[in-house]
Design a protein around this nucleic acid. Structure first.
Length: 260
DNA sequence: ATGACGGAAGTTTTCCGA
């Protein structure tokens, strides 16, 4: 089973890239962030024609998440339960790889708040949001031992995930309180699947549009796929696919793919 | 210190992302 995550920075603009990528990479599940599309505009028919079901939770201009899948989703959850939030940042669904009930996998797609800067109210919102996510997932893991948490975390967990750790030190996306929140998720038994395998140095998932950052590989690894302990033994690979970042009018993020 | 690029809204200029 292959699952992927991709912050597309507007699904309206990026739909051709998504369809091309799915044709070349027929994953079972693709989680999208920053669709920036209200639900009435979601391109469900085009995705269905490409062989994918979709569940989505969007809004105008900002945020918006979706799960595309070969198999239809069940038990779809929108947002973090009992955590009022107008920003569409979470969608979760269950998939069954086989006929055995215990094989069911809970897929949680997240678009973690950016935080803007460490002295911003948005940063405070980000940290509170991450606590709410943690507390919900703690419960969710008791119901679904096999759980995959995919998305744009807006956190580079370690200095090796940052092209210039000195310049970024203490900044939003790398600050210690955010990294602590990432570790708190890990303490639930969620493992960074990318780090289960040997990886090239300077592997990133996001590059600024400006200053030729992609060409110079001035990036951050902020898009992650965390998997619960019962999935670790069966995990075969986790890779970042840089190809879509090289296309015309790319998203600033690129897909991450895990094989279970 | 600031902007750089790209998208959206929506109308010519602003907000936001990471």
């Amino acid at each position: 089973m292959k699952l992927a995550t991709w912050n597309v920075n507007s699904l309206k603009v990026r739909l051709p890239h998504v369809l091309d990528w799915l044709a070349a990479n027929p994953v079972d599940v693709l989680c999208l962030q920053e669709t920036k599309q209200q639900d009435s505009d979601f391109p469900q028919a085009e995705l269905q024609a490409a062989g994918y079901h979709s569940v989505f939770s969007g809004q105008k201009t900002y945020n918006g998440v979706a799960i595309l899948s070969r198999e239809s989703a069940s038990d779809v959850q929108f947002g973090i339960p009992d955590h009022a939030d107008e920003q569409k940042r979470v969608i979760a669904a269950t998939f069954t790889s086989g006929s055995i009930a215990s094989d069911r996998i809970r897929v949680v797609c997240v678009y973690v708040p950016n935080g803007q800067s460490v002295d911003s109210d948005k940063y405070h919102y980000k940290l509170k949001w991450l606590v709410a996510l943690h507390d919900w997932l703690k419960e969710e893991l008791t119901r679904y031992p096999k759980l995959v948490l995919l998305g744009d975390y807006n956190i580079a967990p370690e200095d090796r995930d940052v092209h210039d750790p000195i310049a970024w030190q203490g900044n939003v996306l790398v600050s210690e309180p955010e990294r602590q929140q990432f570790k708190n998720l890990a303490q639930l038994g969620l493992r960074d699947s990318f780090r289960l395998f040997e990886q090239a140095e300077k592997s990133y998932s996001w590059w600024d549009y400006r200053m030729m950052a992609f060409r110079r590989n001035h990036g951050l690894r902020i898009d992650h796929i965390l998997i619960s302990e019962p999935l670790v033994a069966q995990c075969k690979s986790c890779v970042i696919d840089k190809a879509p970042r090289k296309l015309e009018r790319p998203s600033d993020h690129t897909p991450v793919v895990v094989e279970l």
